[in-house]
């Protein structure tokens, strides 16, 4: 392979540091997890990761994370839009509010959400008479995962929207595009990559979330048990190999999903630049 000549100096050094850093922080701990599962035979591994309770928890974790991320993609885009395109009193405050789920300890978030959505809480007491139970049901899991994922979409979409000058929209309008066409043909394609990134981040964050969910989920086996809880449960029984087996499955699924989202992003980028 021919060696590329880079314009910028320091390629070898910086790549070396990157690899070292990634290895220390990500790769080595993760491979330790993989290594631990080798204590199990393949049949045992399969039995652990396909047990009905564990499978039910995958469905809940990935399903609720997906719903949460989709909700965040829609409402996060709306929030980012409002924050960049309009001026109103208290805008700075709203802007700061968006970051709160980042800073709050997740356990605090979980307790607060549970208090509000429980049948004797502010929102829960309004919903309960209509037959909607949030706290201690899978719906509660969705609420918690939506809460923690909100900043990701807003913060990735916002700078792109800011860069996207209002002139483009005016140009589209002056060329005869109606409002919907301006949005779907001009703005949305430019936002796609950022929106997808935000979605992927919110989704990934939700999959791994533990602290806030266990308070609101109710943790009933087969119904409202998330996969991270299954892992903790196994650890509490000193079943290290079983815990890492489930963790490995989560890792692999997450990696495939994130990889697919990245691929989607690459594809949409490609399409946009090709159509220009």
């Amino acid at each position: 392979m021919a060696k590329h000549k880079n314009v910028l100096p320091g390629f070898n050094l910086s790549l070396g540091y990157t690899l070292l850093y990634l290895s220390l922080i990500v790769l080595i701990p993760l491979s330790a997890a993989f290594l631990k599962t080798t204590e199990l035979s393949l049949a045992e591994f399969w039995q652990v990761v396909t047990a009905p309770r564990v499978v039910a928890s995958y469905k809940l974790t990935f399903g609720a994370s997906l719903i949460g991320a989709v909700l965040n993609a829609i409402f996060g885009l709306l929030t980012a839009w409002v924050l960049t395109r309009y001026t109103f009193p208290g805008k700075k405050l709203v802007d700061a509010l968006v970051d709160l789920p980042f800073a709050l300890p997740t356990a605090v978030a979980g307790i607060a959400l549970t208090a509000v959505y429980a049948s004797n809480g502010w929102i829960g007491s309004i919903l309960e008479p209509h037959g909607i139970k949030v706290a201690f049901t899978p719906l509660g899991v969705v609420v918690a995962l939506t809460f923690i994922g909100l900043p990701f979409v807003v913060r990735t979409v916002q700078p792109v929207l800011e860069d996207l000058e209002a002139e483009t929209e005016e140009a589209a309008a002056s060329l005869g595009a109606n409002r919907w066409q301006t949005f779907s043909r001009v703005i949305l394609p430019a936002l796609w990559p950022a929106l997808l990134t935000g979605f992927a981040l919110a989704f990934a964050r939700a999959i791994g979330e533990y602290g806030s969910v266990i308070f609101i989920a109710g943790n009933m086996p087969m119904v409202s048990e998330i996969t991270p809880l299954i892992i903790i449960t196994k650890l509490e029984q000193y079943d290290y190999a079983g815990a890492t087996a489930v963790a490995v499955v989560m890792l692999v699924i997450s990696f495939i999903l994130l990889f697919a989202i990245n691929g989607l992003q690459w594809w949409s980028n490609h399409r946009i630049s090709a159509s220009r």
Binding site: F136, I214, F215, G218, N219, M220, P221, L229, I232
Partner: peptide
């Protein structure tokens, strides 16, 4: 109705 992870919970 709810299985909390610990006694205090």
């Amino acid at each position: 109705p709810v299985l909390d992870t610990g006694g205090r919970g």
